[in-house]
Nucleic acid binder design. Structure first.
Length: 451
DNA sequence: AGCACA
């Protein structure tokens, strides 16, 4: 026979390759056209278009050798030749085993995609929506989002370049379905390229980054809520813009944390204007609005990492919210607006820093008779000066005294050292007496405590 | 219609 194994250039003796050589393509055939032709046979992990003197040749690399074989086999026995724009395309195994990465940056197939979401603000597309969209092509390991001059961008890490390529091929230039987006978003085109990253370094689960391979990664409360544009502080660390509204994440919420509890705690630093409690990512969070940034900053500094109740329960993590004025129901189970006068249910604004016993009773019938405001006149209270010993005695007019039978005699809001459990009141922090909560509020399955 | 290049 004329064919011999010593002539690899002869088509019937070419060794199979994941890479196919296509020729007689229409002039400057696009990658999309190439992919359309080849993708029925398998996952395309790389392409090279417009090669050759006439720019009418191309290479396509499949994820698997068998996929390349199936395409060759199909057209070897097909009565219809492979065609692009009606032009017959001749396909052979390439004499190379892989396409070299000579593409422009961003075209080099990797397992991490760089996705630019055009025409939206970061807050418009949640990381959960991004995860949903990109999970259609395979397990998404990690997502990191950020805002750059180019707009809202996300890095999507898959296990392999093949999966990433498939997602890119399917989604590049497309839009996230409207029903997944806020109503005001009119367009949301995805522009997708490959990142040079292979493994993203996700430090926290947050609204801008996720590691789906590590469910135990700590949640970063400063990044859960809102769409803060990170600001670099003097130390070079990411610093959130200050706000008069604090976002509190409540960790280890063994006991109910109500609006009243939060009001008592946060009133220690100034007038609390509004409170809203909500559930997010399976945890409880709250927004606490002060009249000014300074007060919020003091409260944040003093309360961060402290527990409302002893034993490490209801540990607070505080960050500045992007909100400046909460729009809350004046009086509900989960929210309170203390700035609205004449509701009949609320104390008047001047005295609103601490709810009176009577208002607590109205809202918490079970708590009747148990309310003790341990904070007192907040306007005069300086957390940096108040001493620990002053807890009950410094606040005249307190109608109730601590119950001798209280099962948890120590005060809450102790600083929680990472291994500092259980805690005792002697571990008082530099802030002196801590504001306390819990009074007047029924616990879940626990009797109330007093101070 | 016949194998590319960082």
């Amino acid at each position: 026979m004329s064919s011999s194994s010593g002539q690899p250039q002869f088509r019937y003796t070419q060794t199979p390759s994941k890479v196919l050589h296509l020729r007689n393509l229409p002039w400057e055939c696009t990658e999309e056209e190439l992919i359309e032709l080849c993708k029925p046979f398998g996952k395309i992990v790389n392409t090279k278009c417009n090669v050759g003197a006439n720019r009418n040749q191309a290479f396509v690399e499949f994820a698997d050798l068998n996929q390349a074989i199936s395409m060759i086999s199909y057209y070897a026995s097909s009565s219809e030749p492979a065609q692009v724009r009606g032009k017959t395309v001749y396909i052979q195994y390439s004499n190379r085993q892989e396409i070299v990465n000579n593409k422009a940056s961003g075209e080099v197939a990797g397992n991490v995609l760089l996705v630019t979401i055009e025409g939206v603000e970061a807050g418009d597309v949640s990381i959960d929506v991004i995860h949903l969209v990109f999970s259609a092509f395979g397990f998404v390991h990690k997502i990191a989002t950020f805002e750059k001059a180019a707009g809202f961008q996300a890095l999507i890490q898959y296990n392999d370049a093949a999966t990433a390529s498939e997602a890119r091929n399917a989604l590049d230039g497309r839009s996230i379905p409207r029903y997944l987006l806020p109503e005001h978003v009119t367009s949301c085109h995805l522009r997708i390229s490959f990142s040079a990253h292979t493994d993203l370094n996700i430090k926290f689960q947050s609204h801008r980054s996720r590691d789906y391979t590590n469910p135990y990664l700590p949640v970063n409360p400063s990044a859960i809520e809102g769409t803060l544009q990170p600001v670099l502080g003097p130390d070079g660390k990411i610093k959130e813009p200050e706000s008069n509204v604090l976002l509190a994440s409540i960790e280890n919420m063994q006991y109910a944390v109500t609006v009243d509890v939060l009001h008592t705690v946060f009133s220690a630093f100034g007038t609390v204007q509004k409170i809203a409690i909500f559930e997010k990512n399976g945890g409880t969070q709250a927004l606490i609005q002060y009249p000014d940034v300074t007060t919020a900053a003091v409260a944040k500094e003093a309360l961060e990492g402290h527990c409302i109740y002893d034993g490490g329960y209801c540990k607070l993590h505080l960050s500045f919210s992007r909100h400046t004025d909460l729009n809350v129901k004046a009086y509900s189970d989960k929210s309170r607006d203390y700035t609205i006068p004449d509701t009949g249910l609320l104390t008047n604004p001047q005295a609103s820093a601490v709810p009176t016993a009577s208002t607590s009773w109205q809202t918490n019938p079970q708590a009747a008779g148990t309310f003790v405001s341990s904070v007192g006149q907040t306007a005069a209270w300086d957390p940096s000066k108040t001493t620990f010993a002053s807890a009950a005695g410094t606040f005249p007019g307190q109608p109730f005294v601590p119950s001798a039978g209280a099962p948890y005699p120590t005060s809450g809001l102790l600083p929680t050292a990472s291994a500092g459990y259980p805690q005792v009141s002697q571990q008082m922090p530099q802030y002196g007496s801590q504001p306390r909560a819990g009074s007047g509020v029924p616990y879940v399955g626990q009797p109330p405590r007093y101070f």
